[in-house]
Nucleic acid binder design. Structure first.
Lengths: 210, 210
DNA sequence: GAATTTCTGTACCAATAGGTATGAAAATGC
DNA sequence: GCATTTTCATACCTATTGGTACAGAAATTC
C-alpha cells in the first residue's frame, strides 16, 4: 500500500497492457442502460454492447453484473441526478430545501438526455430472488436519503425555522413520497411541466403556510 | 357462438376431461407471484410452482406468460386493491373522494395478506425489451386511473364542489402521484401508520382549505 | 361400450442468461 | 531483447428462460 505515484504526470503508468477503454465512460454507458431497463431487465449483452467492450473486459474491470450496478449507482448518486438532494440540503431554510428538491427532481426526472425516472426507484422495485440484494441496496439508499432530509428538518426545527408541532420524520417521508411518485409519473411519460405543477401543489401543504 | 347453457345448473358441463384445478384460484396465486416479483422477475417455474399446475396446463388455460399477467392484472383491478379507486370515485364530494382514496391506498398497500406495493406500479416500471408491452399496458392503466379521477374532479367543479380556479387534471395528477409514491414507500417497507400520515399531510394541500 | 374430447405429466426444444478458460496482443522493467 | 504483466477477443461453459410435442389418462356423448 505504499504511495508510489510520486511524479503526478499522467494517471500512473501501469505495468501491463493498458486498458483500451475509459472506465468512467464505460461506467456511464452502463449506468444509462441500467437506468432505462432496470437491473433485471438489463442483460450482460446489453451492457457490453452499450459499453463497447467485451465480456471478459467487463468482468476484469467491474467484477460482475451486481458490482457494476453498484458502481453505476454510486456514479448516479454523485455525478448524476442523485446529487440534487445534496444540493438541496444546503439551502438555508427548510422551505427552500423542499422547494429546490421538488423542483430539481421534477427537472432531472424529465431531462431529455436521460432515461425517465429515478434509478434508485426503478432499478429494482420488485424482482426475483436473483436481484433481492440489489433491491435491498436500493431500499437502503432511499431510506438514507429520507433520513438525511429528516435530519435537516430536525435542524430547521431547532433553528426555529420550522414549527415546533412539525414531525421532521413525517415531513421528510411526505416529501420523499412525492419525489418517488414523480419518478413513477416520469416513467409513465409525464412532462416536465406536469411534474413542476405537482411540485408546486405539494408546496401548498407546507406547514408554515399558516 | 350459440348460447347453449340453457340449464344454468353448474358451470356448463364440458365435453372432455374436466380441469383438475380451479381457474380463479390458480389465477389468484399467479397474481400474488407477479405482485411480489414483478413481471420480469417472475419465471414460468415460479408460476407453476405457486399455482400447483403443470406448464402445459398453464398454457392451455391462460395462453402464455403475458396473457396470464394481463388476466392477473384484471383480477387485481376488479377484486383486488385496484377496486379502491372505483369505491372512492363514488364518494359525494371531491374532498371525500381524495380522503377515501389516499387512506384506502395507504391501507391496502400495507395489507399484511398481500405483497407490499401496487402491481400497476411495480409490475414493470422499467424493463428489458421482452416486457415493453407489459410496461406500456401498466402505463396505460395508470393513465386511465388518473383520467378517471380528473373527470371526477371536473364534475365536482361543475357541481360547485371544487373552486373554479382548480385545474382538475393537475389535481388528479397530484393525488395519483402521492399514491404512486406511497407504493414505492410500501415496497421499501413503510408501515401503515407511516402511509396514513403521508395521506393526511397530502390532504393539507387541499385547495378548499382556504 | 366405443368414439371423442380434453386435460395432465414427462420430456424436450432453441435461445439466452450470467460467467470463464485460453491464448494472442501490447505495454512495462531490466 | 527478453521476461513479466495486464488486457483483449474468441469460444465456450452450465443453468435457466419461455414455450411445446407427445402419449397416456379421464371424462362426456352417442
Amino acid at each position: 500500500m505504499q504511495n508510489d505515484n510520486l511524479k503526478q504526470e499522467k494517471p500512473a503508468a501501469h505495468k501491463g497492457r493498458p486498458r483500451e477503454f475509459d472506465t468512467e465512460e464505460a461506467l456511464d454507458k452502463a449506468l444509462h442502460v441500467f437506468w432505462r431497463k432496470g437491473y433485471e431487465g438489463t442483460s450482460l449483452s446489453d451492457l457490453t454492447d452499450a459499453m463497447g467492450i467485451s465480456r471478459p473486459s467487463l468482468y476484469a474491470a467491474f467484477g460482475n453484473k451486481e458490482e457494476l450496478f453498484r458502481l453505476a449507482l454510486d456514479r448516479y448518486a454523485e455525478h448524476g441526478p442523485g446529487a440534487i438532494q445534496r444540493q438541496a440540503l444546503s439551502e438555508p431554510t427548510a422551505r427552500r430545501v423542499v422547494e429546490r428538491l421538488l423542483r430539481g427532481v421534477a427537472e432531472t426526472l424529465t431531462d431529455p438526455c436521460n432515461p425517465r425516472g429515478c434509478l434508485a426507484v426503478q432499478g429494482a422495485l420488485s424482482c426475483g430472488e436473483a436481484a433481492e440484494q440489489v433491491k435491498a441496496e436500493l431500499c437502503s439508499r432511499r431510506s438514507k436519503s429520507e433520513a438525511a432530509l429528516a435530519e435537516r428538518f430536525e435542524r430547521a426545527k431547532q433553528e426555529g425555522d420550522l414549527g415546533k408541532a412539525v414531525d421532521p420524520a413525517a415531513l421528510a417521508r411526505f416529501v420523499v413520497t412525492i419525489t418517488q411518485g414523480m419518478s413513477v409519473q416520469a416513467a409513465g411519460g409525464a412532462s416536465r411541466t406536469d411534474l413542476l405543477a405537482v411540485a408546486d401543489m405539494a408546496l401548498l401543504a407546507w406547514p408554515s403556510s399558516a
